[in-house]
Design a protein around this nucleic acid. Sequence first.
RNA 1: GCCGACGUAGCUCAGUUGGUCAGAGCAGCUGAUUUGUAAUCAGCAGGUCGUGGGUUCGACUCCCUCCAUCGGCUCCA
Length: 644
Amino acid sequence: MIKITFPDGAVKEYQEGISAYQIAESLSPRLADDVLSSSVNGKIYDLDRPINADSTLKLHKWDDPEAKETFWHSSSHLMAEAIKALYPNVKFGIGPAIENGFYYDIDLEGKQLVEADLKAIEDKMLEFARSKEKFVRQDVSKAEALEVFSEKGETFKCELINDLQDGTISFYTNGSFTDLCRGPHLRDTSAIKAVKLLSIAGAYWRGDEHNKQLTRIYGITFPKKSMLDEYLQMLEEAKKRDHRKIGKEMELFAFSQRVGMGLPLWLPKGTDLRMRLENFLRKVQKRYGYVQVITPHIGQKDLYVTSGHWAKYGADSFRPISTPQEGEEYLLKPMNCPHHCEIYRLKPRSYRDLPLRLAEFGTVYRYEQSGELHGLTRVRSFTQDDAHLFCRQDQIKEEFCKVIDIVLYIFKTLKFEEYTAQISLRDPDNKTKYIGSDENWAKAEAAIVEAAKEKGLPTVVELGEAAFYGPKLDFMVKDALGRSWQLGTIQVDYNLPERFDLEYIGSDDKKHRPVMIHRAPFGSMERFVAVLLEHTAGRLPLWLIPEQCIVLPISEKFNDYAKKVCELLNNYEIRAFIDDRNETIGKRIRENELKHTPYILVVGEKEESAGSVSIRKQGGESLGSMTVEEFSQFIKQEVKKELE
RNA sequence: GCCGACGUAGCUCAGUUGGUCAGAGCAGCUGAUUUGUAAUCAGCAGGUCGUGGGUUCGACUCCCUCCAUCGGCUCCA
């Protein structure tokens, strides 16, 4: 007998070799129907795989991420089976579950697959799903695995097998399709009731563009048809929140082919919004002891040779700008740090001067490949809310904590409740690709981990994701379609101080090397505005929105009064506008509602004689009438509440 | 850059198997109307149907090139 411990702490005894599914059956037939996957001793485990020792057991139903992963992983095998049935000559790459669904990379041997072909694959998948094919696990030796797959001509699989440890290799078979796979999988295919293949894309084998490009098919499946319908509905809804659409509707920003791709044009309302965000951050930064600087948009090539960026990124950047003077070359600045380093170098610095916090809303230019550009989230010209903190080694953690405070204050004010903080550390197996001493790296990494822990951030640690010059902490937020975007970033840098030979005089009267911290709480103004628009679906908070209220005169007779109201409100620094078009009041209300204007002020005879405005809140709620002064006080209160 | 999708007025979209198919709504302009909380009425104007080739008696419709946009991949200081 073996002891099985359940998540609630209960312990039950079972026959050795019992499966998770049998245990579920013993608990309740209903549970056995719903359970899709299990974790044994914290590792995801096939429901039918025998359990041979005392273990902890967790049964996963659809709502658990583990269940979805198993479900979608099995679905990718089901898709592979269908594709193999329809196109027998294909070769397979990898086919994992992803956050929303799954994909499989396939070498179609020259055959072109277009979206119209997907329907046939979907139908085949459903056919196999209905025939309730078991997922059968088989442990194999490395030699055996290689033999099986090389016989089939599955060169990609053989490459994978070669990298695996003998004794850890397993196959899974569903129907006539056998795949190299660690598992786990569903018991059989019958749980997959709804299938949708979403798109075809090219993807390079092992993510390397020097390798062969395979065809990647993305899909998603559900245990119920209604869930698929809901999901597709959700995708439609998300499209409505696309910042590119909202930005166009609200006239915030635009692109022009003639100006150039990826070069955003900020329109008057967008500029207004952006400046308000910048001022908001300027105020916060001032409280935290930052000083503002302004540096040029170009710099001599030598500046970037010194910083090391020319060697590392020069080939993939905008080409140098040459001048009438022979041999003179300038680069569009791809970052602000080298300029700031030069400011640091202007005079001898004392340990008493540190930390020196230089901030700049610095516009930078980076050459992104054309296919990479995406609205405001990925552009070729953008403005970082940049700052560089020059500090002593022993100040790193405190400075880090303060930056985290700023980021959290911004997130709180703008109601970004869902974010993760990604700590990117060195790849411990490949330390050579990083600049800086082992000792310094270790110290910096420890400081970041401690600071994140102290601030209670929801963190994930990614090994090997660090920049070449230092570890970093990134704040990731999701857009309308669930894609993750990096916003705020904090990075330690031991490299630039070295390269620019930065120093300070310590209390010991000796020269020391300062540490540099790069940080940008918004990330970039462009990306931040994009994510903010998707997050709020264009319903920006009152303190930020370009048009806080709109004044509607009932008829032409009251245009003068409406103008007066508007001017008065503007004097109170309230962003009020007037809509005196020759349209019915009903139409003007409708259109301003559709624009999500927070307050609509209607003025007619009653209001003019009382010196008041009649207030309609966005959505239709009436707030009665107030004098112009009362209303301006009211708006100020509301704004104050938002910024608390 | 690569794989796939798409490209008709400023915007959102119709346009059946190639033959009055160049259309609608909104926006714009002109006029009427002077409005009390989600669409007043009438008229006018707007497009070499992304570009350049080709097939055809005839192409928005079929084929090819290129360009742009969109979904991915690679990359992201």
